[in-house]
Design a protein around this nucleic acid. Structure first.
Length: 559
RNA sequence: UGGGCCGUCGCCAAGCGGUAAGGCCCCGGAUUUUGAUUCCGGCAUCCCCAGGUUCGAAUCCUGGCGGCCCAGCCA
């Protein structure tokens, strides 16, 4: 499928080059480093596919899973469990290499003392607001902290007492001693350690000081012998700091940070802060709400790991700002689902049809392919009876000539069954609503075309007596504007109120009521559907993962 | 107005001095008991703009323009 001969992206080019040049003895080690402060989303999938993917493409290449858990205030075990489930579900395996930045708290601490000993770090007593003032602005240099020239002994003593819990939260920080006049804000003596009396989900109360991302990340990479540390563009400015820290210390390996642009997708948001706000507000049913761009949401919606991986392959890796169209994601989804989904018929909004030419009580069992393009998937049996249901929108009393479905007096093919003709329309005498169609069937049209005339339309149906009732949930994007990130105010206020439509009283082929149903199904002419966990015995609930391409809606719009 | 990065078709994205890949979308048409699938065909004389170098530039140089990121003891 993928042509391995052509260059894939600039990161793979760099890696190939490094490997060829024997950098790090020709080893390839990557890592996927989520912070356990939320659920993974499809943007993370891009990073996961890159990190695990590139490792898998090279003999001996490995990718670690490392939780970047340096900020206990926001982190939780719920997230570490969910993240592991999602990575595994996507099809990747970290084997025994599951690590936590918190595993390195002790060595991290000792490297910090080393920095102090070398005069490269100092304890600063400035308050957060004072530190901000001293930092300067984008256009003006900062000023040295009055604590910048503390002696090594004093720094060491103070830092040890920070660890020992002698000072209140926020009273002091350990800072790198770099350059307060640097045009790069990250180099203006960034904080390395802060005092925070918060229970950590893994180390409990063992620590009252916690390292910052900038300090911990590079060292964690080096300790794991990571060769290529791939991250998103916003860390580009941090790379000089990443390199600075590694340069000061004697570490087992020298990782290289390379940045790529993060994924943006139309009609959704990707920041964990905003996703969290949606969850907390109750606007969505949770992190795994089928409308969410989270891995768990996509999974519940019915996306397959294969389709997400294919999507990540399609979007590529670059440094350009991007906002990918939903159509691309849906294309990857449909092409996977098309190939693997068994076919079935379901009627979402039933309209009763009585076949007057069919004997009362008579049942005929017809066979239909499970997949018209793949005979190997076998056949299924469907039951034809006198009373049927068709889709309300598949009948019109009058219609433009392009309309190929059932009209008054007209004929249509019932999929996998007979051609029928509509003889009479029964309406509710009060409301005028169409409640029933009286039709007749042509017995000669089973598995055969009618003679002397053409029947263009084919519609789906279900037996009124041999079908089960259930619910279907239809989804639309969470936001109606392609770039919700650009919106002002609370993201929660912009949620599309019509992003979920619940349709009850739907009719399914009986197989769909079975609890063993785990596959994605194609409901013919309607789309791909996935059984939701809200299903009850005998009362199935299906999520529409994605609809089929719909040429008719385009034709209709032009009429 | 400091620093970093980016700018190739509506959306992604190859291209690395030799005369614009591919995918998605879109538009035609064929096949079709899913208006689905599949299949054919079309879709950038032009690469943010302007100069320059060169036999030759999207690719090199110069100067503009536009966009994104950075002033957390978040990651």
């Amino acid at each position: 499928m993928t042509d391995s001969l052509e260059s894939a992206d600039f990161i793979r080019d760099i890696i190939d080059q490094d490997l060829k040049n024997g950098v790090n003895s020709g080893r390839l080690q990557t890592r996927f480093p989520p912070e356990p402060n939320g659920y993974l989303h499809i943007g993370h999938a891009k990073s996961i596919c890159l990190n695990f993917g590139v490792a898998a493409e090279h003999a001996g290449g490995q990718c670690n899973l490392r939780f970047d858990d340096t900020n206990p205030e926001k982190e939780d075990v719920e997230y570490v469990d969910a993240i592991q489930e999602d990575v595994r579900w996507l099809g990747f395996d970290w084997e025994e290499r599951k690590y936590f930045a918190s595993d390195y708290f002790e060595p991290l601490y000792h490297y910090a003392e080393e920095l102090i000993l070398k005069g490269k770090a100092y304890v600063c007593d400035l308050s957060p607001s004072a530190m901000r003032e001293y930092r300067g602005t984008l256009t003006e240099p900062g000023r040295d902290s009055p604590y910048r020239d503390r002696g090594v002994e004093e720094n060491l003593d103070l830092f040890r007492r920070m660890r020992a819990g002698e000072f209140p939260d926020g009273a002091r920080v350990l800072r790198a001693r770099i350059d307060m006049a640097s045009p790069n804000m990250n180099m203006r003596d960034p904080a390395l350690y802060r005092i925070r009396r918060v229970e950590h989900h893994r180390t409990g109360h063992a620590w009252v000081i916690y390292p910052t991302y900038d300090y911990a990340h590079g060292i964690s990479d080096a300790l794991e012998c990571v060769t290529h540390s791939l991250c998103t563009l916003e860390f580009e400015d941090h790379r000089p700091l990443y390199d600075w820290i590694l340069d000061q210390l004697d570490l087992p390996c020298r990782p290289r940070q390379i940045e790529f642009s993060r994924l943006s997708l139309e009609y959704t948001v990707m920041s964990k802060r905003k996703l969290n706000a949606l969850v907390q507000s109750g606007m969505v049913a949770g992190w795994d709400d089928p409308r969410m761009p989270t891995i768990s949401g996509l999974r519940r919606r019915g996306y397959t790991p294969e389709s997400i991986r294919e999507f990540c392959r399609c979007i590529g890796i670059s440094k350009s700002p991007n906002r990918v169209e939903l159509a691309l994601l849906e294309n990857c989804l449909r092409s996977d689902l098309e190939a693997r989904s068994p076919r079935t018929m379901a009627v979402l909004r039933p309209l009763k049809v009585v076949i007057e030419s069919w004997p009362e009580g008579h049942e005929e069992f017809l066979t239909a392919p499970i997949h018209p393009q793949n005979e190997a998937m076998g056949k299924r049996t469907i039951c034809f009876t006198r009373e049927l249901f068709i889709e309300q929108e598949d009948f019109r009393e009058t219609a433009p000539k392009q309309y190929k479905r059932l009209v008054t007096g007209g004929e249509v093919r019932l999929r996998n069954a007979y051609v029928i003709r509509c003889r009479e329309v029964i309406q509710d005498p009060v409301t005028g609503e169409i409640v029933e169609l009286r039709c007749e069937h042509d017995p000669a049209t089973l598995n055969a075309n009618p003679v002397g005339r053409k029947v263009a339309g084919v519609i789906h149906w279900v037996s009124a007596t041999r079908s089960v009732v259930g619910e279907v949930r239809l989804y639309a994007p969470l936001f109606t504007m392609p770039e919700p990130d650009a919106l002002k105010g609370e993201i929660v206020d912009h949620v599309n109120p019509d992003s979920m439509e619940i349709v009850s009283g739907c009719r399914f082929e009986p197989i769909l009521a079975e609890e063993s149903v785990a596959l994605p199904y194609q409901f013919e002419r309607l789309g791909y559907f996935h059984r939701d966990r809200d299903s009850c015995p005998g009362a199935p609930v299906f999520n529409r993962t994605v609809g089929l391409r719909d040429a008719w809606s385009k034709i209709e719009q032009k009429l």
